[in-house]
Design a protein around this nucleic acid. Structure first.
Length: 278
RNA sequence: GGUCGGAUGGCCGAGUGGCUAGGCUCAGCUCUGCAAAAGCUGCUACAGCGGUUCGAAUCCGCUUCCGACCU
């Protein structure tokens, strides 16, 4: 009898040791790793996003690492579609696959799919964020209220980003975006969520940031500052440098902020995994 | 020894008689195409003691600590 195919999902907060754990598993099962990390996909980002080392990447085949340029569009929808196609393909030749990463939404939508909603509309987003700038949140709230008051009431209408997306969906009137492909094989999902005590995790984060500084994070950030407006650079480990490069703060402040923001991020991840997975 | 300042929650910081300043940290949380993003909620403190007052972080006195200046 043939064994059931197995999809391992290795996740957990940043700096919890996902990468090493996934590689261990991959070597054991002789299978590749499918990354689920919204920042490690970018070729130009390296130290700050704690990519697997060159050595690790040479040892085990990784997908979705160095996958696109920071100048290209990438988001949950694209990830979901591409990752499902990839998994469908890889399961033809593998019994086991490993998904590894800390981007909760990527994992959730990979497993549960996304409704066939319209994709993003850059022109509309620009228009709406300009409106937000000039007229404030209530302007966006009023637009959505007039388009779909039920939806407005149901959602978190204090959140400009979600308000914009909701209006985008209502306004587009376009046929829904390409549907997410279905899984082609039957498989069992095994969640492997790494949990660490808060103080242990925070200590690991602090030490990892120190290591990033030793490894040349300043230069990496310096070389990327021209692209600070890009979504890919809205990332802990980069944005903290911009004031420093303008002479507005000391490097110690940069380091402390990166540590702090990484801790905040890890905390949000923990909340997500606790409530959104399974 | 003397004079004058200051002492506010984990940190910063406003407030000069009367309803919870605010910011940050921290904690809890939300989550279907920006997710390392965006947003929500919580944390009632005024150095100590005594006094004035219906009522004091705010006024008065003493004590302690810190700072500046004078001898």
């Amino acid at each position: 009898m043939t064994e059931k195919k197995l999809l391992h999902i290795v996740t957990g907060p940043t700096a919890s040791g996902k990468t090493d754990h996934a590689i261990e598993l991959a070597l054991k099962y002789h299978c590749p790793i499918i990354s689920a990390d919204s920042r490690q996909v970018y070729k130009e980002l390296d130290i700050a996003v704690a990519k697997p080392s060159k050595n690790q990447l040479a040892t085990v085949k990784h997908y979705f690492i160095d996958h696109v340029s920071i100048h290209e569009e990438f988001n949950t929808g694209l990830y979901t579609r591409q990752a499902r196609e990839l998994i469908n393909d890889l399961f033809n030749t593998h019994q086991q696959l490993i998904v590894c990463g800390g981007t909760g939404l990527y994992i959730k939508s990979l497993i549960h799919g996304l409704d066939a909603l319209p994709g993003k509309d850059d022109a509309l987003r620009k228009e709406l964020s300009d409106l937000l700038e000039s007229d404030g949140l209530s302007a966006l709230q009023n637009i959505l209220k007039s388009l779909n008051s039920e939806k407005f009431e149901a959602m978190d209408h204090q959140n400009p980003q979600r308000l914009i997306r909701a209006i985008e969906i209502e306004k587009s009137g376009q046929p829904a975006d390409i549907k997410v492909p279905a899984f082609a094989h039957e498989f069992v999902i095994k969640y492997d969520v790494i949990e660490l005590q808060r103080d242990v995790l925070y200590d690991r984060i602090n030490r990892r940031v120190d290591k990033m500084f030793e490894d040349g994070l300043e230069k990496e950030a310096f070389d990327l500052q021209a692209y600070q407006h890009l979504n890919a650079l809205q990332t802990v480990g980069y944005s903290e440098w911009w004031p420093y490069f303008k002479g507005e703060c000391t490097i110690d402040v940069v380091k402390d902020k990166i540590k702090q923001h990484t801790r905040n991020y890890a905390k949000r991840q923990v909340t997500w995994f606790k409530h959104q997975l399974e």
